[in-house]
Amino acid sequence: MKYVAQAYTGLLYVIAALAAATLIWLMISVILSVLMRNLGLQPFAWLFTSAQYGILYMTMLGAPWLVREKGHVHIELVTAALPRTIRQVVSRLVAMACVIVCLILAWKGVELLLTNIERRDFDVRPYYYPRWLLTFVFPLSFGLMAIEFARFVFERELMHSGEAGIHE
């Protein structure tokens, strides 16, 4: 069990690191293509396409890590106004709702992925790029996000501080 937890945390951070690397790649790809163009060469079309796909990869691969970091912005209005005990209940219920949303999207993501593989779907840009190479990030990302939100349902720490916005 301990190893499963470690492997899970490892996966979460590895894909977040991939998201960070993608951000750097955005910079590099733009600079390379501008340099090529201005040297009178024609920039590789994949530099451009990789940046477009990079946005999706970056967002989805990094999103679970951001749940752990409590980086997804929320508005503390009701939760801040509530007494402590009730706030705890509401906070856990909201986290539970987030789990459900992510699970639904993860499940539909699996279906979409399987459909893309079965239909041999392509994303049509300068290249024909297999669609499943894009859609596999949905079940992965929403699945891990569901787990991360579940921690705010069952573990000690709450998603809502109640403090920052206590007088709102």
Binding site: R37, G40, L41, Q42, P43, F44, A45, F48, T49, V124, R125, P126
Partner: peptide, 26 residues
């Protein structure tokens, strides 16, 4: 087409890149 800065699109990319040997800017 050397030195042309050519804007591309899914319809004619194959022609531009395979025959004209151009790298398109999508």
């Amino acid at each position: 087409v050397d030195g042309l800065k050519l804007r591309g699109n899914a319809v004619y990319n194959a022609f531009f890149s395979n025959y004209l040997n151009a790298q398109v800017i999508d």
